[in-house]
Amino acid sequence: MTKEVKIGLIGIAALAMLIYGINYLKGINMFQSANYYYVEYTNINGLAGSSPVFANGFKVGTVRSINYNYKKPGHVTVEVEVDKEMRIPKGSKGELVTEMLGTVKMNLLLNDKTNEFFQPGDTLPGITNNGLMGVAEEKLVPQVEQLLPKMDSILQSLNKLLADPALTATIHNAERLTANLDVTTRQLNSLMNNELPQITGRLVTITDNFSVISENLKGIDYASTFSKVDSTLYNVQLLTEKLTRKDNTIGLLFNDPTFYQNLSTTTANAASLLEDLKAHPKRYVHFSLFGKKDK
């Protein structure tokens, strides 16, 4: 065998291995027997070649190719390769499901109510199921579109609010208030740590003093004290009554006008006599060393 033949065989083997590797990566097993079916859609929703084909959640095949059906405009034919043992009952459908991340897979919805089966090469009807993404597109997108003008209005109002100088002033006031609260907190901590023990000690002293006073008050004979007070008040009452009656000297002094007038007259005469005595002492007192003289 010449060197050129060896190189050719090595190239053919490398090409075959490359083709096998590419198909293996696509999920196509070239050494496994398979049946081919066709599924017809009006919209494949982004289905790609080599996508898996499932039946009852189990992978049974692979999308082999996707071709536009020029004989039936508006239709796309998908060729699927399924396991040789897989038999598809008539009435089954190929459903395209759009997953959350946007990938599309094919589910074979098998009709288990018949014993008739499609033959390899037959065409199955296809349907689409937009899944959660479709529901979101159908229901959420219109709502989002309705909310967009409101969101725009809210953003404009928010921009006006943020641009308002009053907001900046409010923030500064809040900062000052926070600083004042911090100072107040430190002062309260200082008071709690330094002044409060002294105040507590003074309160304890005052409490002790009140206790001593309370003990002293307990030793007072309130009954005897109030009895003496009552006796004193009674004597005051008797004195008051005597002062208002005329059967005693003090009562006459306060209540008899005649006695008062006589006393006033006597006082006035005594005063006049004293004045005359001061003015004419010789009328009342005579002193003589040689005896009394006739006037």
Rank of each mutant, 00 (worst) to 15 (best):
E4W: 03
V5E: 01
K6H: 08
I7G: 01
G8S: 13
L9T: 03
A13I: 10
A14C: 01
A16S: 00
G21R: 08
G21E: 03
G21N: 06
N23G: 02
N23L: 02
N23K: 03
Y24R: 01
G27S: 00
I28W: 03
I28H: 01
I28G: 05
N29W: 04
S33R: 10
A34W: 07
N35V: 00
V39S: 00
V39P: 06
E40I: 11
Y41L: 01
S50G: 11
S51G: 10
F54P: 04
N56Q: 05
N56P: 06
G57D: 10
K59Q: 10
V60D: 08
T62M: 12
T62F: 04
V63D: 00
V63T: 02
N67S: 15
N67H: 09
N67D: 06
N69P: 02
K71A: 07
K72N: 08
P73H: 07
G74A: 07
V78C: 03
V80N: 05
E85P: 09
G91H: 05
G91L: 00
S92H: 02
G94N: 07
V97I: 13
T98R: 05
T98P: 02
G102E: 09
G102Y: 09
T103N: 14
T103I: 04
V104Q: 03
V104P: 02
M106W: 03
M106N: 05
L108Q: 02
L108P: 11
L108Y: 13
L109V: 04
N111F: 09
D112G: 05
K113F: 06
F117S: 02
F118G: 10
Q119K: 13
Q119D: 09
G121N: 01
D122W: 10
D122S: 07
L124R: 01
L124M: 00
N129C: 06
G131H: 04
L132K: 03
G134M: 04
G134F: 01
E137C: 12
K139V: 01
K139W: 08
Q143P: 01
V144F: 13
V144H: 13
Q146E: 15
L147R: 06
D152W: 12
S153T: 07
I154C: 12
S157V: 00
L158W: 06
L158K: 10
L158C: 11
K160R: 11
K160A: 02
D164T: 05
A166M: 14
T168E: 03
A169N: 15
T170R: 07
T170I: 15
I171N: 10
L177V: 12
L177S: 06
A179H: 13
V183S: 14
T185I: 08
R186N: 14
L188Q: 03
N189Q: 08
N193Y: 10
E195T: 03
N209D: 07
S214W: 07
E215M: 14
E215Y: 10
I220D: 06
F226E: 09
V229T: 08
L238V: 12
L238I: 03
T240H: 04
T240K: 13
E241A: 15
T244M: 01
D247G: 00
L253V: 09
L253I: 12
F254I: 11
D256T: 12
D256M: 12
P257G: 06
A268V: 07
A270M: 14
A270K: 14
A271C: 11
A271F: 10
A271D: 13
S272G: 11
E275I: 14
A279D: 12
R283P: 01
H286A: 14
S288W: 03
G291Y: 07
